[in-house]
């Protein structure tokens, strides 16, 4: 085949690419230039998981732990505000004590002063009250707030995780000891 016979193909190819290019640019306002610049959806940036804790040793060999561990996996470059986390268990027949929040990383904001944030991974313990815990499926409703470093922040957003309490589950000791000291 002669090279000249490929000219129409090349022309058609160029025309198709030219037609597709404006479509690629015709994105709604507010979208950054590259898909890689897009911040993650809140549920992908901050992934909570719930785990039932049944009589595991507490910190420094303290009292046994009973309750729910909320384990957050936080995407690189993202952080959660410690003081803005809220937890609610439904149905409320499951009695949960005050959340045990690890101290987190101290940051000194030039305007809002000192605050504590979580990066990478963090586990928050929701201790059960002593006694028999009614078996069943429970949902922990979470309200969280955080940011993608230097780019955007997420106003308080809801999340939910579930945990199953099996029949016969019993809290045999008081809630766990406080978590270890702060990281800087």
């Amino acid at each position: 085949m002669h090279a000249r016979s490929l000219v129409p193909v090349a022309v058609l190819l160029a025309a198709l690419l030219a037609a597709a290019a404006p479509a690629a640019r015709a994105v709604p306002p507010g979208i950054l230039a590259s898909p890689t610049d897009e911040p993650l959806e809140p549920d992908r940036a901050f992934r909570p998981d719930a785990r039932l804790v049944a009589g595991e040793p507490g910190a420094a060999g303290g009292t046994e732990r009973h309750g729910i561990d909320i384990e957050y996996t936080i995407a690189p470059g993202y952080y959660l505000y410690r003081s803005r986390l809220r937890f609610e268990v439904v149905p409320p027949t499951l009695l949960v004590g005050k959340p045990e929040l690890p101290p987190g990383i101290e940051v000194d904001d030039p305007f809002i002063g000192k605050s504590f944030i979580y990066r990478d991974r963090v586990t928050i313990h929701l201790p059960f009250a002593v006694g028999v815990v009614r078996p069943g499926r429970y949902t922990v409703r979470i309200t969280a707030q955080g940011c993608a470093e230097d780019r955007i922040c997420y106003s308080p957003f809801p999340q939910a995780v579930t945990v199953n309490v099996p029949p016969g589950y019993r809290v045999t000791d008081s809630p766990s000891a406080p978590p270890p000291g702060p990281r800087r």
């Binding site: 479509a23 690629a24 015709a26 994105v27 709604p28 306002p29 507010g30 979208i31 950054l32 898909p35 897009e38 911040p39 993650l40 959806e41 955007i152």
Partner: peptide, 10 residues
């Protein structure tokens, strides 16, 4: 791909 689904798309 660029016209759908990005988190910042209003």
């Amino acid at each position: 791909n660029s016209a759908t689904s990005p988190a910042l798309a209003p």
